[in-house]
Amino acid sequence: MSTTPTRLALALGGRLEPRPRAARARSGIVGRVLPPLLVGVGLVLVWQGYVAVSGVREGVFPSPVEVGRALVRDRSLLLSSAGTTLSEILLGYGVAIVVGIVLATAVSSSRLLERAVYPWLVVSQMVPIPALAPVVVLWTGFDIRPKLIVIALVTFFPIAVNTIDGLRATDSELVGLLRTLGAGRWQILRIARLPTALPYLFSGLRVSAAFAVIAAVFAEWVGSTSGLGVLILDYGNQTATPDVFATVVVLAAIGVALFAAVGIVERLAIPWWQPGE
């Protein structure tokens, strides 16, 4: 973490003398936010330039300015649809977190159970969701349940697998030491195994956060009357391409926000974790 401002300082020809803490913190944020922001601005400029030069039609490939206009034009519909989709994502993701952690803890509580259940966890991911989703709608109807199930089904897997790996990664010598201190299996789980698994769990949560948005759109395509996924279909049918792009921008923003939220919770929950050090 601290290498970023250092490298930036070197790259800018700066000196490496210790600076006041506040200055360092500010340059840390700048160093982290500025590069991706510049890349983003660059990409948008290239995009705008391409559309202007090639003269491609708006209905085929809208320019960023047109997408921006669509964002403003559709703001109220986008906002209410985003609310629907976001609540689906949060609920489905929440179910996946609970199911994933409980399943991982149960599965890794015994070798036999792990051997018996783990392959079926993998099989659950081999089931093509596009094939399964219409059937789920058939079972549950068009309320929020099929979306919840589809999102949870897609997102629980990285959470469960990472947590299982994390529980497994517990230092066996530490487990031995705790046993000599009189710890039983539940105490070992609480004191050593779960904390060891936390960084792994957060890796799974980040991967799942990205999947959750895609899963929500798909779930809405199969059976829904509202939400950003439905909006994409509607705009697509009207060949309102700038509006489709605007919807995608909102979806991407939700994904990024979810990803960032996981990162913030991670830093608060496991301040002791220093990846790569």
């Binding site: 031995g176 030491l177 936390l198």
Partner: peptide, 15 residues
């Protein structure tokens, strides 16, 4: 649980 034991590695928990 009846004998104190200190392994080679300190095994301090980072958390």
């Amino acid at each position: 649980g009846r004998v104190g034991y200190m392994p080679q590695r300190d095994l301090l928990m980072a958390w």
